[in-house]
Amino acid sequence: MRADTAVVFPKTAQPNQVLYLALFTYGNQMSKLQSFLPLLFLLPFISPAQLNLQASHISLGYLAPFAVYDIGAKAGVGFSCWQWEQVSTGKEKTKARIHQIYFEPQLAYFGQRNYYHALWANLETGWKWQGKGKKRYSSLSLGLGYLNRSEALTLTTHLDGSFSVSEWENRPAFLPSLNYSWGIRVYRSFGLYTRFSYAYQVYFQHTNAGLLFFELGVRYTLLPS
């Protein structure tokens, strides 16, 4: 039996109700993912005036493409655009969930010594959901990023054992990404998160290629939960 679902707008947030209701109604009819993804892409383009922007969290993570040799780091500041509470009344109990639509500008570095360095500026727009009063949360987000990959073309090795990259090539690319994060509040506002991402490098001059990322980091929540 389908649970009855009600929406409670939190007093603090003043969401753009029309857009929200569209999302909500649409989302009730289709699977969450399908309804959510196209709308996420639109969010960064909506006038900030329409949104009630509040810095919601800071995240700092160790980031590595899906490989043993790559390492990297990512930092981001999240802004909450909308937050609302959803109350579902089931047969036996009532469940409350907090939803948040956020966006998060991020800056990341990753690379593989002697092979490449990459700087990644990313704007991630996501949907986070969390049981009310619960420590754990999940989020699904889309990123639109710009990647500057410096590719090592030549490495000069000297016979005394020293070596260094002697020729680099800059390779700019767009880097859209799809991310799933899972996090937990550990102590007060501090939490840990892990994120899996699939990104696709769309190069201007070189062959496009996929990337899988794994990220592990700490998150500091600025907004009261």
Binding site: N114, Y115, Y116, A152, L153, T154, L155, T156, T157, H158, L159, D160, F163, V165, S166
Partner: peptide, 9 residues
């Protein structure tokens, strides 16, 4: 022995 070798990563 002095010298260097250029490699491709």
């Amino acid at each position: 022995v002095q010298g260097s070798i250029d490699l491709i990563p």
